[in-house]
Simulated assay, not measured.
Amino acid sequence: MTDDPARRAWQALEEVHDPEIPHVSIVDLGIVRGVTAAADGSRVEAALSPTYSGCPAVSVIELDAETALRAAGFAEVVIRRQMAPAWTTDWITERGRERLKAAGIAPPDAAGAGKAALLGRPAQVACPQCGSPHTEQLSEFGSTACKALWRCRDCLEPFDYFKCI
């Protein structure tokens, strides 16, 4: 652990994982929008943005973040839900994208690609198993609301695709 309270808070939050995507921390998903810690380390406030306004995991994530911060030595912990600006897949770190892929989940397209999908142009999604670009969407709905179900036409494996927002 570090003596810097803000850095200690960030380190603690890097250990908190999304319960629906346990391979990726809430920091790497871009859910943690900011941390403010008292210089003496007694108090910390963390701003979290849910990936979706109706995400069923929001309360669990907030409780897990509070628990991790208390375990890191903060006596007073404030978790603030920050709805604006709305979370976007552009906030997922490169490490988060790599961890999604390693878990068999195709990471979202690069910035702006979601706009193309909203305009009716299909996304080009590479298979996270074999890397093939020959994939097809089976359903707009995957294992969670933030993912769609796809299948690779080459290796025939189904996989989740993290939707762009």
Rank of each mutant, 00 (worst) to 15 (best):
A86I: 12
H17L: 05
T88R: 10
A106T: 12
V44R: 10
C146E: 07
R43T: 10
S139V: 04
T67W: 03
V77I: 09
T144H: 08
L69G: 03
A46W: 03
A37N: 01
V24F: 10
V27K: 04
A71M: 02
R99W: 10
F141E: 13
M83T: 14
T135Y: 08
T93R: 01
G114H: 04
I31S: 04
A71L: 09
R33G: 02
G104A: 07
S42Y: 00
G34Y: 01
V44C: 05
F141M: 11
G112F: 09
V35D: 02
Q129A: 14
A103I: 02
L69Y: 00
I105T: 12
R97W: 08
P19A: 04
A68P: 06
G120N: 07
A113T: 12
V125Q: 07
A71V: 03
V78I: 09
V77G: 04
A116K: 14
S132Q: 13
A12T: 07
S25C: 06
A47D: 12
T93P: 01
Y52S: 09
I21P: 02
E20Y: 11
G142W: 09
A72V: 02
R8V: 05
G120P: 05
S139F: 05
L118R: 15
R121T: 13
A102H: 03
F141K: 10
S49Q: 06
A113I: 01
D109R: 11
C130G: 11
W150F: 15
W91N: 06
G54R: 05
A46Y: 08
T67V: 10
L63T: 10
E62M: 14
L138T: 06
E66R: 13
S59I: 02
I61P: 01
D90M: 04
V125F: 10
G114C: 09
V35C: 00
P108L: 06
G112D: 06
A126G: 07
P22S: 06
I26D: 07
A68E: 00
T93W: 03
K147D: 00
W150R: 04
C127I: 10
I31W: 09
W87S: 05
V125D: 11
A71D: 14
A145I: 13
V125T: 08
L149F: 10
A116N: 11
G96Y: 03
A145Q: 12
D28A: 02
E140L: 09
C130E: 10
Q11L: 15
I21S: 01
A37K: 04
A148H: 11
H17V: 13
H17K: 12
D109K: 05
L69V: 07
F74Y: 07
D40I: 08
W87P: 05
C127F: 10
T88M: 09
A39V: 13
T144G: 00
A65D: 02
V60R: 07
V24T: 07
G34Q: 05
V44M: 06
V60E: 15
P122A: 13
P122Q: 13
A72P: 04
Q129D: 13
G104C: 10
S143E: 15
V16S: 01
L13W: 08
D18Y: 01
T88L: 09
A111M: 12
A110H: 11
E14Y: 06
P108I: 05
